[in-house]
């Protein structure tokens, strides 16, 4: 993987701004969820979003690729800008343009249950990019190899474990060659022993220079992989800093109280990724169902 992309300066990201969100407002009826969010993500950065439940992290991610329509603000990904609150051809084209550049990984996988692992991966390249069958299949094999699931290519989603499902979901998103990956709590639905294998794949992806926005409560992952952490509460960004600073020297009271609830005892989660143990990459199949 690391050969396929130029290695960036240690997760720091380049100078190129890949994602630019300005003045984003989103309400569900009377409920004002995002209250003017502004931020930028540089190419190659890994941004971890933290915040209490209901603070609008998922909504923000879903607004970026227009799964939710924000009422106000602009979202730029690469050279495509979505003007929120507009409608019509141009708007729809820009939404499609953004979606083509974003891969998304959901908390509950959302694999297509009627398609095999390979079919899940090749579906979008075939339909959206009009890729040739052979080329798409070849790319799928590479991606499944990359996430350690070559031996599960012909299985159906019902026949593999949660961790394997999430790795397929990552491969499926990567198949569209996105510039940006959005992860919405990718390990929250997983049994603890399956979390490591998914985080490891994500870490590899980050090492290879992928730009990522990750909502997660895996503090170990955040500390190890993130170039920047953002603490979000009640629809606004409260604090934004390097993981070290945010975790160990938070400036805001809200951040402190949140971290008190969530931070693991010393070294707990950190070892999942940083420990360097072989974390179930394909050779083991936990919770196998037949």
């Amino acid at each position: 993987m690391s050969q396929t992309m130029p290695a960036p300066a240690a997760h720091g990201g380049s100078d190129e701004v890949l994602v630019e969100v300005k003045g984003l407002h989103k309400s569900f009826g009377q409920l004002h969820v995002l209250k003017g969010v502004d931020f930028v993500v540089h190419r190659g950065e890994v941004v971890v979003l933290l915040g209490p439940s209901g603070s609008g992290k998922s909504t923000l991610l879903r607004c970026i690729n227009s799964l939710e329509e924000a009422q106000q603000g602009t979202i730029r990904v690469g050279d495509v800008t979505v003007e929120c609150g507009h409608w019509g051809r141009t708007y729809e084209k820009s939404v499609h343009g953004v979606r083509l550049q974003c891969g998304m990984v959901f908390q509950d996988f959302n694999l297509f249950p009627h398609k095999s692992v390979t079919e899940n991966v090749v579906e979008a390249p075939l339909l959206v990019k009009g890729m040739k069958k052979d080329a798409a299949a070849k790319r799928a094999r590479e991606l499944l190899e990359q996430v350690g699931l070559s031996d599960r290519a012909e299985y159906y989603p019902s026949q593999i474990s949660g961790g394997q499902k999430q790795r397929v979901a990552i491969a499926r998103a990567l198949a569209m060659d996105p510039k940006l990956m959005l992860f919405d709590e990718p390990t929250s639905a997983l049994d603890p022993e399956l979390i490591g294998e998914v985080l490891l794949v994500m870490k590899d992806l980050a090492d290879a220079g992928m730009t990522m926005i990750v909502v997660t409560h895996e503090m170990g992952f955040a500390r190890d992989v993130a170039s920047r952490c953002i603490f979000m509460d009640e629809g606004v960004f409260v604090e934004e800093d390097s993981p070290e600073n945010l975790f160990f020297h938070p400036r805001h009271e809200r951040t402190k109280s949140f971290l008190r609830h969530i931070l693991p005892k010393e070294g707990d989660n950190v070892e999942r990724v940083a420990g360097g143990a072989p974390l179930g990459m394909g050779d083991e199949a936990p919770q196998e169902m037949k």
Binding site: N65, G103, M104, N110, V128, A169
Partner: peptide, 23 residues
Amino acid sequence: VPKGQTEAAWALGLSGGQTQRRI
């Protein structure tokens, strides 16, 4: 059919018609 199926398809860039027909 769970809403997540449609969302996953949209996130991959499938059009509305493709999402209905294929997913």
